[in-house]
Amino acid sequence: MAEKAIEAKKKGQKKSSEDYTYVGMVFHRLTRHKLAMVGAFMLIFILLFVFVGPLIWRANPNTQIEGLGGLFNPASRAHPLGTDDYGRDVLARMFFGGRISLFIGFISAISSTLVGALVGLVAGYYGGWSDNILMRFTDAMLSIPTFPLLIALASVLGKGVWQIILVIVVFGWMTDARLVRGLVLSLKEQEYVEAARAIGASANRIMWRHLFPNTLAVLIVSTTIGIGGAIIYEASISFLGFGVQAPFASWGNMLQNAQQFIWNSPRLIIYPGLAIFMTVLGFNFFGDGLRDAIDPKLKL
């Protein structure tokens, strides 16, 4: 194959898809997907904004300016995005709120995927009774309207970051469980699994070393899109007042706080909402491109 690549290079031809490793091929296809690239640039921009921004603009997000003159200031040199109802610097709050929103998004999407993968692996690999019980439970969880219960649980569990992550995971693992179970049902019939079993590999080893890696491609796509969904969930919970609590900022509670000032200070609504929107859009574009890139049937 190497000779073929050299030959192709000599002739000045482009590489064909056979000359790549799997990851290389996915990456190559991804770079040719326009919307995925737009999404990637949006995400890089957001990450730079949130993590490098505070190094450049060193304002404290919780410092309040004393006196009425410090409240609701419009954009100025001292406060590039103005100040809020407590006289706090909005730009600094956008940085730190973004960190919390992204942190919750990442951790809860990855954890939901892992819980879903565990349930799906066990149900798909063992089959029979454990499959029946686990999948009935998954079906039941899927038919409960998620959002009201999410709010109920968030209202009792308390309002810290980890509690919100827990709530999102409790109601977020079901689709991944179904996805993995479906994949495992077909994967476990293949020869390499039979071979592993023949040399005496334990069920645990077969599940995590042989089956799980083969579901990873699909799970990475679902996690990418899941991060966007989790960020929306966090924002919705905070928006109804059950999320991250003041004085800590999250994009969701900044928006909730700004809602009452819609009449006199609408810009306080625009910034955090735009940030949530851009981030979710970035993850959706990128995740969709990733899905197309790992699908070998599709021409790009």
Partner: peptide, 24 residues
């Protein structure tokens, strides 16, 4: 692109924006 914009738009933000435009 329009489909993705719609799917990614947080409804509470879009609602507030609409309210700002049409009611304020």
């Amino acid at each position: 692109v329009i489909s993705f914009l719609g799917m990614s738009m947080p409804t509470f933000w879009f609602g507030l924006l609409m309210m700002m435009l049409f009611s304020v």
